Amino acid sequence: MSVEPEARTDAGAEGLAAIRDRPREALIGFDFDGTLSPIVDDPAAARAHPGVVPALRRLAPLVGTVVVITGRPAATAVEAGGFADLDGLVVLGQYGRERWENGVLDVPEPPPGVAEVRAKLPRILANAPEGVAVEDKGLALAVHTRRAAEPQVALERLRSLIEALAERTGLAVEPGRFVLELRPPGMDKGAALRALAAERGASAVLFAGDDLGDLAAYDAIDALRKEGTPGVKVCSSSDEVTALAERADVVVDGPPGVVGLIERLADDLG
């Protein structure tokens, strides 16, 4: 008997059926933070849910491609996820600018604007509320307010300053869950997902995410559907971000729910 995840839309049900019918040509993608890993106050302390690697180890041999697409550097995601010895996994870091596969890491040179932001952020944040922290990702820098006494107030207080700095340095601002990230423009999770789907000749695509940066991947799935490729949008739900749940075909309860979804897919395809 099938135990595949339950879709609440016809398009999502069609996508799941397409994955079931031709799994060796399917692409299954995931965000990292908030999807495979619980959100924590210190990004450096994030680790994948303990059920993720065993579940992905079951799923990977059954489908064409399993990919993690994250704003983190690819190497950081591999370490935080415990993915180093997970065969059949692709990790696209920095929204697709970096790629890790079979132990090989490909990282481009950062654009000049990143160095300028790195130099100017300390002065801009000199009077920021206590608890505001900067995460240096190499190709991007993220300003986190989660540890401030009033995270949303701190975020809004800094937003115009961060946006002005991004405009001066030619970078883009990526908002997230109590974070504003300054990164090179021209690449997002949707572009990364579409490029990999084309590279692999994917017959169906599923992507699971939780935050605003994942909406670009949802847009990519919508576009692929219009072009004839079935797709499934999965939301790892939270109280902090509701925009994804409103557009998702399948909604699960955070990283534990994502693990359950992976296990159900593996049961159904195995």
Rank of each mutant, 00 (worst) to 15 (best):
Ser2Gln: 09
Val3Ile: 05
Glu4Pro: 01
Arg8Pro: 01
Thr9Gln: 05
Asp10Trp: 07
Ala11Pro: 00
Gly15Thr: 11
Gly15Asp: 08
Leu16Phe: 06
Leu16Glu: 01
Ile19Lys: 02
Ile19Val: 15
Arg20Glu: 02
Asp21Ser: 15
Asp21Pro: 07
Arg22Ser: 14
Arg22Glu: 14
Arg22Trp: 05
Leu27Pro: 06
Ile28Cys: 03
Gly29Glu: 02
Gly29Arg: 01
Gly29Val: 00
Phe32Ile: 11
Gly34Cys: 09
Leu36Phe: 06
Ser37Glu: 09
Ser37Ile: 09
Ile39Arg: 07
Val40Asp: 08
Asp41Glu: 15
Asp41His: 11
Ala45Gln: 14
Arg47Gly: 09
Ala48Val: 13
Pro50Val: 11
Gly51Gln: 11
Gly51Lys: 10
Val53Gln: 10
Pro54Phe: 07
Leu62Lys: 04
Leu62Gln: 13
Gly64Pro: 02
Val67Tyr: 01
Val67Cys: 07
Ile69Arg: 02
Ala75Arg: 15
Val90Asn: 00
Val90Ala: 12
Leu92Pro: 07
Gly93Gln: 09
Gln94Ser: 15
Gln94Thr: 15
Gln94Met: 11
Gly96Met: 08
Trp100Gly: 09
Asn102Lys: 14
Asn102Glu: 14
Gly103Arg: 01
Asp106Leu: 14
Glu109Ser: 14
Val114Glu: 07
Glu116Arg: 15
Leu121Lys: 05
Asn127Tyr: 07
Ala128Pro: 05
Pro129Thr: 06
Gly131Lys: 13
Lys137Val: 08
Leu139Pro: 00
Leu141Tyr: 02
His144Glu: 11
Thr145Leu: 14
Thr145Arg: 11
Arg146Gly: 12
Ala149Leu: 14
Pro151Lys: 08
Gln152Pro: 02
Leu158Gln: 06
Leu158Asn: 08
Leu161Glu: 12
Leu161His: 10
Thr169Arg: 06
Ala172Ser: 13
Val173Gly: 11
Val173Lys: 05
Pro175Val: 12
Val179Phe: 09
Leu182Glu: 00
Gly186Asn: 08
Lys189Gly: 10
Gly190Val: 05
Ala191Glu: 12
Leu193Pro: 03
Arg194Tyr: 03
Ala195Asn: 03
Leu196Ser: 05
Leu196Met: 03
Leu196Ile: 02
Ala197Gly: 09
Gly201Ala: 11
Ala202Leu: 03
Ala204Ile: 03
Val205Ala: 03
Phe207Arg: 01
Asp210Pro: 12
Asp211His: 13
Leu212Lys: 01
Gly213Asp: 01
Leu215Ser: 05
Ala217Met: 04
Ile221Gln: 00
Leu224Arg: 06
Arg225Met: 08
Gly228Trp: 05
Gly228Ser: 11
Val234Asp: 01
Val234Leu: 00
Ser236Tyr: 00
Thr242His: 09
Glu246Ser: 12
Ala248Val: 04
Gly254Val: 07
Gly254Cys: 07
Val258Leu: 04
Gly260Ala: 15
Gly260Asp: 15
Leu261Tyr: 04
Ile262Gln: 03
Leu265Asn: 04
Ala266Gln: 04
Ala266Ser: 14
Asp267Ala: 15
Leu269Glu: 03
Gly270Val: 13
Gly270Tyr: 11
